[in-house]
């Protein structure tokens, strides 16, 4: 068996604050193969975006990736000098951001922003780069790409802008795309279109995809595997069908139980009580303990990772199969 394309081992990222160093993500481990889609799910502040930026090497001071390994095709990205990391970024590893209104530079034309991406990694003429940019726009379903190349970002709708961002991410046929909530800022219909585009392109090119979202319903239709993050740690990780059908961690269980489609009509929606703890003041032991109905004395210690049937779990009292979801 060959080594996976991406293997994250015990990744830890810390931020220096006035109150000392705060660990934002810790013990994050997962693997991703070529053509696979991993859904990274969690609430705001659970550390899923930080995980994405850590892989990209785009954590700025006062933040710092302080532990673990990011093995990309067998090479630890953390040990790469910045120029080599820059050569990978946008080339082998690309990223799509959350808000398409903010990611494109408002004062530069689309062709400028696309061509510079090509020229940053390849020695080709501007004409060739321009042709490739036009083809990429066509590939993500932008009508009359030749004309649209000369447009400015504000002349596009939100969905179209996100398509442009996706086209930019695809320019070099990357091995890995990290998509940080790319459909959150869009209408539901546009969301579905974007999902279809990305899914098709990732499958056609064998691109590995990390899809960061708080929307479990998106993950259910898109991902092969899912990792649920809570307070900077992955609490449950496994095949998407298994995890969504039979969630074992009380947090995942609560998330899925709170989906409107899972709740009978006319009743109050189920919810997880309480709020996400501040990352600087995590409760002792299991971070979910104060919100968890199943918590006991044992949960005052950090739960170890257990592995059953290809599923990783970080809980002392997992929900068993027999209980109602």
């Amino acid at each position: 068996m060959t080594a996976p394309m991406l293997e994250i081992r015990n990744l830890r990222t810390e931020f220096a604050t006035d109150a000392g160093r705060v660990t934002v993500i810790d013990e994050v481990s997962f693997t991703l193969n070529r053509g696979q889609v991993l859904g990274l799910v969690g609430e705001s502040g659970s550390g899923k975006s930080v995980t994405g930026f850590s892989i990209m090497g785009l954590i700025d001071p006062p933040g710092q990736v302080s532990g673990g390994q990011i093995l990309f095709k067998g090479e630890d990205l953390r040990t790469l000098p910045e120029p080599r990391m820059r050569a990978l970024r946008g080339n082998r590893i690309a990223m799509i951001f959350q808000d398409p209104a903010m990611t494109l530079n408002p004062v530069l034309r689309i062709d400028t922003q696309m061509i510079e991406t090509i020229l940053a990694h390849e020695k080709v003429s501007k004409t060739v780069a321009r042709d490739r940019a036009r083809d990429a726009l066509g590939m993500v379903g932008i009508p009359s790409p030749e004309e649209r190349l000369r447009a400015y970002p504000h002349q596009f709708s939100g969905g179209m802008r996100q398509r442009v961002a996706i086209a930019i991410a695809l320019l070099h046929r990357p091995d890995l795309i990290i998509a940080d909530e790319p459909t959150t800022a869009l209408d539901v219909t546009i969301q579905a279109q974007i999902l279809a585009v990305v899914q098709r392109l990732a499958r056609d090119h064998g691109t590995g995809l990390i899809w960061i979202t708080h929307d479990l319903s998106v993950i259910a239709g898109l991902a092969d595997r899912v990792a649920v993050m809570y307070a900077g740690r992955i609490v449950e990780h496994g095949d998407v069908d298994t995890v969504i059908r039979t969630p074992r961690h009380p947090y995942t269980h609560g998330l899925i139980g709170s989906l409107p489609s899972r709740n009978p009509r006319g009743q109050h929606l189920k919810q997880i009580t309480g709020t996400t703890p501040a990352i600087a003041a995590l409760p002792q032991g299991c971070a979910f303990r104060p919100r968890c109905a199943r918590a006991t004395e044992a949960c005052l210690a950090a739960p170890p990772v257990t592995q059953t049937e290809g599923r990783l779990l970080r809980c002392f009292h997992p929900v068993t199969e027999g209980e109602a979801a």
Binding site: M56, L58, R86, A87, L88, R89, G90, N91, A94, M95, F97, D99, M102, T103, L104, N105, P106, L108, E116, T117, A120, H121, A165, I168
Partner: peptide, 20 residues
């Protein structure tokens, strides 16, 4: 965000500063 995106595209810091 657009500067972060420009960095994610792998652009050199010099180009980001003088153009973007």
């Amino acid at each position: 965000e657009y500067v972060k995106f420009a960095r994610a595209k792998g652009l050199a810091p010099r180009r980001i500063l003088t153009v973007h």
